[in-house]
Write a protein that binds this DNA or RNA. Structure first.
Lengths: 327, 327
DNA sequence: TACACAAATGAACGCGTGTTCATCAATTAC
DNA sequence: GTAATTGATGAACACGCGTTCATTTGTGTA
């Protein structure tokens, strides 16, 4: 049923070796013979079997892509850019979706059985043991959106501290004094960094956080936590959210309570997802440099595929302040 | 470097056949021996090489997933559900992202070289020739979101006509008379069906379409087209949009012009993406049954993988009317 | 024409696995 | 106690490909 190189060889009247060479760039074969073989192959609908090709130790052309909640605005945006860049490298993304509660290890272990040439991990909690297992398996790993302490692992991450400083500068410039924080999942690396970045930047200006609540990075959770903050005692005049989705929820919460944004309460987010610029929100935020992040991640990955002994790099990319109307 | 079954066999003191049997469910092997082998394998970090396993004609466990603009709210939602359901089948999604302008054929052709066990196509224009090429290759295909005329191809599709009738019923109930349409990409199957469904349902009630414009299914395009409609001569008192994203853009456009929704202009969409229920929009729409669609698609796919001669099915799933505040 | 050398070609090998095929031990049936 | 049956085991094979290794063909020089 499947058409193999033998079929092409038989129909073209050449040896199977010739067929293989016709598909191998730079192989020693007469040009007209190669053309003939390729024509026959195309006629028969033949394509070299990637599974067999990779068996001899060659590359599979597969890259495992570990992401979390695909439907979230930020992750889907990221996945789109990443999958396009992987394809422009001539490779294919093997999608490994890890929902917030799920374990990343068994999932990635399974994917490793496909002899992926590399893995991009942008979700879940990554242990050093996991990274080393992948490396030992011959699949270099790049971690995105977090930095493993102790180094030794290539990683690309937004400079969350710098981003928070930009937001706090705006906070100070607009004279906010009662500032609250709505964080994401407590264990998330970005959440920890952004929270610390915020408190540090605030204290550097003699400001303090008046309220703290935690959601789960969804719009709904942002709305709930903002409602709690704004209806509680001593309501804030500014809410800094751990990501844009929660900030959008917070804006909706403020409006439901009849508060004006930014006059009564300023609200800002983090990431600059597409929805942040939609008119009803016009969210002041800092842009997570997704395109550059993906580009750097794949650069690191290809470097390491070529030279496994190269020292690990940690790339910190600066975000860009986006002032809109919400603060 | 890579640990193979031979390594496990050597360390466990058994033949390589025994190792293979230990990993094959239902194979003839002593239970304690199997346990021992599995323990040694786990110790060495061994996993059967899927590439080699599939070489003998076995299944690869890969399913090609063809989607379009991943970052769009609807597609990312769909992809999340699909990828989870594929994994719960014990298989893996090979992501094939086809941007609106790109050709689906060469991309899918490449993916076929990985001997995928099946393909779910939810984007791009699908020709019968393409489907037959996949089938000939041993990879059954299920098409989602469109129906190939002439049948012969398994497909799952929302009943767009029924959805439009629901919306028109609401349209009539609220006494709208100047109705406009903002469509998506002209060549898109869903766009054609929804447009025809709308005009048919309108004429059945003695209504006609007063204006027609076309965007590209994005929020921005919905905003642009709605601005043009609402500032033109004889502005509509209702706008039906080809999807929710454009409807969200249309709501923003109306508000920018100082119009009240739904009092001055009613706006509705299609799909019921998560953002449709966000408070600033509260979009009246019809829910595209994504979970059921994915479920049916995978049911058809697994059926066809088991029996390639089964007759093709066309499944039409009814949408659900979601009345909110925008109309 | 004779020789050296490069280019092109086909046979054979190995990649890691599941499976078939004999072989052998252990049980059951008579 | 013997024959028949079952269950477990290891060797060998096939899967489809890239690549190496001889071997053959073609080209340029003396």
């Amino acid at each position: 049923m499947r058409v193999t190189a033998d079929d092409v060889a038989a129909k073209a009247g050449v040896s199977r070796s010739a067929v293989s060479r016709a598909f191998t760039k730079g192989a020693s074969i007469q040009p007209d013979k190669r053309d003939h073989i390729l024509a026959v192959a195309n006629d028969l609908g033949y394509r070299p079997n990637m599974m067999a090709r990779s068996l001899t130790g060659g590359a599979t052309g597969l890259i495992a892509v570990v992401v979390g909640t695909i439907s979230s605005p930020y992750e889907s945006w990221f996945l789109e850019v990443l999958s396009q860049d992987i394809r422009s490298l001539g490779m294919w993304p093997l999608l490994v979706a890890v929902a917030p509660g799920q374990e990343i290890e068994p999932a990635l272990d399974h994917a490793l059985a496909y002899q992926v040439d590399g893995a991009v991990i942008a979700a879940g909690s990554v242990s050093r043991a996991l990274v080393e297992r992948c490396s030992a398996h011959g699949s270099p790993v790049v971690v995105i959106g977090r930095v493993l302490e102790g180094g030794g692992v290539d990683s690309v991450c937004c400079d969350n501290r710098a981003g928070m400083e930009m937001l706090v500068a705006r906070l100070a410039a607009t004279g906010r004094s009662h500032i609250a924080w709505i964080g994401g999942r407590l264990e998330a690396f970005s959440n920890v960094e952004r929270y610390n970045g915020l408190t540090n930047a605030l204290s550097a200006r003699g400001l303090t956080l008046m309220g703290t609540r935690n959601g789960d990075y969804t719009v709904d959770s942002g709305m709930m936590q903002a409602l709690a903050l704004l209806t509680g005692p001593n309501p804030p005049d500014a809410i800094v959210c751990g990501n844009d989705a929660m900030a959008i929820g917070a804006i909706s919460a403020a409006r439901r309570l009849g508060l004006r944004v930014p006059e009564d309460v300023g609200i800002c987010g983090f990431d600059d997802i597409p929805a942040a610029s939609w008119e009803p929100f016009s969210l002041t935020t800092v842009a997570n440099p997704v395109a550059e992040t993906v580009q750097e991640a794949l650069r690191l990955l290809t470097c390491r595929m070529a030279d496994k002994t190269a020292p690990a790099e940690i790339v910190r990319l600066p975000p860009v302040f986006r002032q809109r109307l919400s603060m």
